[in-house]
């Protein structure tokens, strides 16, 4: 025969389970655990029990009290959880978040940063030189003496004192070699200026990354590997890269590089992206003459140099049709790159 306390436990658990809200659950609690509740009554009854029954009933009573208490708490938790869920059930999570405004980096900066980070992974350090340059750094030292057909003075801006705005960042090749003996492995991002009529693809000021690596036995193979790696990192691994012979006074042999990339609009065509070549021995000799030593002995050292047009790269990669947008700084343009 079951002890009445067992029956009491069964009743209590049944009532707890069927209590429909917190108020009814509280009534159940009072009925069983309250000061004059059924469980408390049993505590009173304990006093009058025979001595030998006391431990058995006492143990059972404790078990029943613990079970009922736990069941009431568990049921109360269910009610609390349901109440919490109900409170947020109607919140429209499609409402806008609390606004926090973040600005945008200029698209040119974004392409420059991407490019610089690729070259840095390849062990290039940054170098720099001034925008306002001497004719010597811009032309003579780069194997383009006066009256050379490639000396584009008509296309170069001059200051009144005879200095000029560099027409290319190749000036930094000379500056870097004047400043340090070989080996040298640098890139130089910076502005260059050309006296072109301004239109959708020409701007008075544009941006380049110049590169120079001078070391023992640097070869066309190194040049090729370096720029292929860079261009595939920038345009995607499946980019086709083509080197075409070209002419620059300060490199020999010289090349232009075209890419074909599915990642860009119009990428089914070859797009010209870079000029490069092996540093001309005459450039080393000019640097030696300026340094007053023979640190750049063309028999011992060879090197490659390259120049990338960053405005053009940004136009290709972002599908920007007009170079003038870069300098206008229209927020409707800039914010698209946030």
């Amino acid at each position: 025969m079951t002890h009445p306390l067992e029956q009491l436990r069964a009743d209590a658990l049944r009532d707890i389970a069927s209590a429909e809200d917190e108020r009814l659950l509280e009534a159940v609690r009072i009925r069983f655990l309250g000061r004059s509740g059924a469980v408390s009554e049993w505590s009173e009854k304990m006093k009058s029990l025979p001595k030998e029954e006391k431990p058995i009933v006492g143990k059972l009573l404790n078990e029943v009290r613990a079970a009922v208490t736990a069941a009431i708490e568990a049921r109360a938790d269910e009610f609390r959880a349901a109440r919490e869920s109900a409170a947020v059930a109607n919140i429209d999570i499609s409402l806008p978040g609390t606004p926090g405004e973040k600005g945008a980096l200029h698209p040119l900066t974004q392409i420059l940063d991407r490019s610089i980070s690729i070259f840095r992974r390849m062990g290039f350090a940054l170098a720099e030189g001034p925008d306002v340059e001497t004719e010597w750094h811009c032309f003579d030292a780069l194997n383009t003496p006066p009256d050379h057909p490639a000396r584009n003075e008509q296309d170069t801006f001059y200051l009144r004192d005879g200095r000029l705005l560099r027409a290319h960042t190749s000036t930094v090749q000379i500056r870097a070699m004047q400043a340090a003996a070989p080996p040298i492995r640098v890139i130089a991002p910076g502005a260059a200026y050309r006296r072109d009529e301004i239109d959708a693809t020409h701007s008075a000021q544009f941006h380049q990354i110049e590169g120079l690596y001078v070391d023992e036995k640097v070869s066309v193979a190194d040049l090729k590997g370096t720029l292929e790696f860079f261009l595939r990192e920038l345009f995607g691994a499946d980019t086709a890269v083509r080197f075409r012979p070209h002419y620059f006074p300060f490199t020999e042999p010289s090349f232009e590089i075209d890419v074909k990339s599915k990642a860009v609009k119009g990428g089914e065509q070859w797009i010209e992206v870079c000029g490069c070549g092996m540093v001309h021995p005459a450039v080393f000799e000019a640097v030696n003459a300026a340094r007053g030593d023979s640190a750049y002995d063309p028999e011992k050292w060879t090197g490659f140099a390259f120049g990338l047009g960053m405005d053009r790269l940004a136009m290709i990669l972002f599908d920007i049709p007009d170079i003038r947008l870069f300098a206008q700084n229209d927020l409707r343009f800039l914010r698209q790159f946030a």
């Binding site: 600005g103 200029h106 040119l108 705005l165 200026y193 000021q205 300098a327 700084n329 800039l334």
Partner: peptide, 13 residues
């Protein structure tokens, strides 16, 4: 840009 400003690049000329 974290403070909500947008980067401009204007001409040196």
């Amino acid at each position: 840009i974290a403070l909500g400003l947008n980067e401009a690049r204007t001409s040196s000329l």
